[in-house]
Design a binder for these strands. Structure first.
Length: 210
DNA sequence: TGCCAGGCCGGGT
DNA sequence: ACCCGGCATGGC
């Protein structure tokens, strides 16, 4: 799988994910981007910034209706407002809203905690662990599954954990590598591997050739 | 105009 | 243990 990584890197160049100014912004983005295009998430985050509301304490104290209004462009705004509320509540209770205190804990324990927060599943948890807290967990998203499936590397029925192990067992456990690899898979997916659309013939990165 | 986007949950088999 | 409908906005 390392060979594929270097091919992707040569083709698309370094992605330098996650696009955010702070770890907390990564966490908020991870929740807002659930089944949602990143462009819409950017708008919502822009509105949160404009309202000077991008902190655990502010979101915790904010009226939920106000929060819904700010994140509206990200879609599913009622569920996501509730999810953000539940997440910052957890952050306040467990870490007084302090990201550094959070990052000091072992990754696997954090993953358990995150998964226990309503609205945070495996991908969102791993995105937070990897991109906000620099913990070595490989992120598996819809693009990753689709790309592997269309290239015959998996059958299609595999669970999240199986696909994650597929990567983590065959790669050095390096945070920088995991970040860049997932970002590159998304870059490939956005360009050549959209849902319910045949694999683009012009895709320069079919795995079986080269 | 319909389809799609960096999921997750709850209820039903 | 899966499978499905619901959740909502904005670009192409």
């Amino acid at each position: 799988m390392l060979a594929l990584f270097y091919r992707l890197l040569r083709h698309f160049g370094p992605q330098r994910w996650w696009p955010a100014d702070t770890p907390f912004e990564v966490m908020v983005g991870a929740i807002l981007t659930q089944n949602t295009s990143w462009m819409n998430v950017e708008r919502a985050i822009g509105l949160l910034k404009g309202a000077k509301a991008l902190s655990p304490h502010k979101i915790d104290a904010m009226d939920i209706g106000t929060l819904e209004g700010l994140i509206r462009p990200a879609g599913f705004f009622r569920v996501k407002a509730a999810r953000l509320k539940a997440f910052v509540r957890y952050m306040m209770e467990a870490y007084l809203g302090n990201v550094d205190a959070m990052a000091a804990r072992p990754g696997w324990e954090l993953r358990e905690e995150l998964m226990a927060v309503p609205g945070i599943g495996e991908e969102t948890a791993d995105s937070i662990l990897l991109y906000a807290l620099d913990k070595p967990f490989f992120v598996v998203d819809a693009y990753t599954k689709r790309i592997l499936e269309r290239n015959g590397l998996i059958r299609g029925g595999e669970s999240y954990g199986e696909i994650q192990r597929f990567f983590m067992d065959s790669l050095p456990g390096d945070v920088g590598l995991f970040k860049e690899y997932h970002a590159l898979l998304v870059a490939l997916g956005k360009t050549y591997c959209r849902a319910r659309r045949p694999l683009c013939d012009s895709c320069p990165l079919r795995f079986e050739d080269g």
